[in-house]
Simulated assay, not measured.
Amino acid sequence: MSAPHIVAIGGTLRPESSTGRLLGAALSLAEARGARTTLLTGPAIAFPHYEPGAAEGHEEIARFLEALRTADGVIVGSPGYHGTLSGLVKTMLDYVEQLRGDARPYLDGRPVGLIATAGGWQAAVSTLQALRTVVHALRGWPTPMGLAINTAEPDDCVDAARPQMQLMVDQMFDFIDR
């Protein structure tokens, strides 16, 4: 089997957002296990509001959809805004609808690691649950380990999350290797 392709999507429009840094760190762990990786965050996922057929002619959306088509596993990260995922991430996930007619529709048969960040535990945990709900609706398989990260804690969120992140990535590989 060739090296698995892991795609990390989400984050914010800020270049050094906590969510984007965590997605990058998770991909580094996947690369250490031999994966090919793709990170799509910030402007690469700043799509117009979803409308069926609206993807026509949008290079960024086409690149996003092609990355998902070739993905063996996906990591989705979202900041928690008012207790749920951000509009940027929700709109991006709405475009997964364009994969409905594929041989492997939506996120079907793929492990999906989840990372939710927020300036407090309540919003981080509720955002993680919202991400699980959306991934289930898209036929993905959320890993048992999902990360709810309180960015208001004084520790560096990437270093503090590394043990849980490693477990999440390991669970993705366990699923892929089945």
Rank of each mutant, 00 (worst) to 15 (best):
E97G: 04
E97F: 05
Q98Y: 06
R100K: 14
D102T: 04
A103F: 10
A103C: 04
R104V: 08
R104N: 03
R104L: 05
R104T: 13
R104S: 13
P105T: 05
P105S: 13
P105D: 12
L107Q: 14
D108H: 15
D108V: 08
D108W: 15
D108T: 15
G109H: 02
G109S: 07
R110F: 07
P111N: 09
P111I: 08
P111E: 06
P111T: 14
P111W: 13
P111A: 12
P111V: 08
V112Q: 04
V112I: 09
G113L: 13
L114S: 08
L114P: 10
I115W: 02
A116I: 03
A116T: 08
T117Q: 04
T117S: 11
A118L: 03
G119K: 06
G120L: 10
W121D: 01
Q122E: 07
Q122F: 13
Q122L: 13
A123V: 09
A124D: 02
V125I: 14
V125D: 02
S126E: 08
S126H: 11
T127R: 01
T127P: 02
L128V: 06
Q129T: 12
Q129C: 13
Q129W: 10
A130Y: 12
A130V: 10
L131G: 02
L131E: 13
R132W: 02
V134K: 09
V134P: 02
V135F: 00
V135L: 01
H136Y: 13
A137H: 14
L138H: 00
L138P: 01
L138C: 05
R139W: 15
R139N: 08
R139G: 05
R139Y: 15
G140V: 03
P142C: 01
P142R: 07
T143R: 00
T143Q: 03
T143E: 03
T143M: 03
P144E: 09
L147R: 12
A148F: 01
A148N: 10
